[in-house]
Design a protein around this nucleic acid. Structure first.
Lengths: 220, 220
DNA sequence: TAGATTGTTAATCGATTAACAATC
DNA sequence: TAGATTGTTAATCGATTAACAATC
């Protein structure tokens, strides 16, 4: 019956950043921190930090601040990093390989268990001890191994169909790198990484800044 | 004296998505579209589309809608895609190579002109006709070639220093893939791609959805 | 002209910031 | 106890949605 208010994604997307900063503090041996100190480091308001955290409960102590290690772990729990996730990569091109080779994810419970591609030249290869398999074997593999997350780094032409299949086979999350908006049942969560959007935004910012400078010069 | 109101990043970050959808319509040969039709395709409100576009001017016609090709081109201009950008990649590991090999950027005026690494094994190699050079040559290269954008795909230990140097050498934009928040003069624009944040957010959503389902089951 | 749809103003909603009482 | 800082409510700000007059 605990009627908890829905937490906004704006808040959720700030948590990993808090987590990163707290992790760094922890490594430096910092034991406690106040919302004000953290806000100065992170360039946000102390008020926002306190509001954000209090969505999930009171992690601090009045007059003292927050225990770094405790808060770090609690945010980790909120983000679901205390659990393990079995991941597969679908599409072992450059980007797929780049992600497969990045070991920073496995550190946090994201375990790569399979790689899939259509290219016979890649099938049978091994990256970081994980085998590249034929996509035709994917259904069986996903079902037998209880794969949680599929990383979609394949050509966009086949993404839609693949996503729909993976949803049917019980996948819980899709990390989509294709410039496509996927529609799946609400049993499947989607996180898009649209690199081209990101680059276009940078282009906008560059132009905007330049115009701003020109205008300023003119007015002088 | 045209006192133009500052456009929020929330709006700007929606533009690439409009641009993508309009590009697809254009390819399909669709000539015109109303804000309502587009809103249904994109799953946003028609009101938002009209508001967003009117930040930059009136691109439509009452009683008719928007000319797809015209609007596509106008958004392209707003995003700065009519210009060309010289880009370098700093750090030619897996991710750097993946981006270097992606030809989708060059199509839109983002031209890769140089690759840089510290690894002697990579230096001298060529990817897509672009040579991998020693980072020691980067200052000269950036200054002589008027490089606009640097893509930072290097280990995070050296990112801070590199970003500061690139800022000094006149770079206009940094596309940062390191889990680091960079501080640079306001002549340099930064766009961060924090893949680990993205994956953590997905983990949160998976857990959240699962809890939601459990709660629902219990209450039945 | 009648119908459609924009551009734009007004209303609503949500997110951020400020303030301060509670409390360590 | 006095000082510090949280947790939380209230005020502000900004973004989204609704409504409709303008106009093609």
């Amino acid at each position: 019956m605990t009627e908890d208010k829905k937490i906004s994604m704006a808040v959720v997307r700030r948590l990993p950043r808090y987590y990163r900063y707290l992790g760094e503090l922890l490594q430096k041996g910092v034991g406690k921190i106040s919302s004000r100190e953290l806000s100065e480091k992170m360039n946000v308001t102390a008020s926002q930090i306190r509001q954000d955290l209090n969505n999930f409960g009171g992690f601090g102590q009045q007059g003292y601040g927050y225990n770094v290690e405790y808060l770090y772990n609690e945010i980790g729990k909120i983000l679901g990093l205390h659990q393990n996730y079995k991941m597969i990569i679908v599409g072992v091109g450059n980007l797929g390989q780049a992600i497969a080779n990045s070991n920073s994810f496995s550190k946090r419970g994201f375990k790569l268990v399979g790689l899939f591609d259509v290219n016979p030249k890649l099938i049978g290869m091994s990256i970081h001890g994980v085998e590249v398999m034929d996509v035709d074997c994917m259904e069986q593999f996903v079902k037998e191994n209880g794969v949680d997350i599929a990383i979609l780094t394949m050509p966009k032409t086949r993404v839609k169909e693949t996503a729909e299949n993976l949803a049917k086979w019980g996948i819980k999350g899709l990390w989509n790198f294709s410039p496509v908006d996927l529609i799946v049942p609400d049993t499947v969560q989607i996180e898009n990484v649209h690199l081209s959007h990101s680059l276009m935004t940078l282009a906008y910012m560059i132009n905007e800044a330049e115009e701003e400078r020109e205008k300023k010069n003119k007015s002088e």
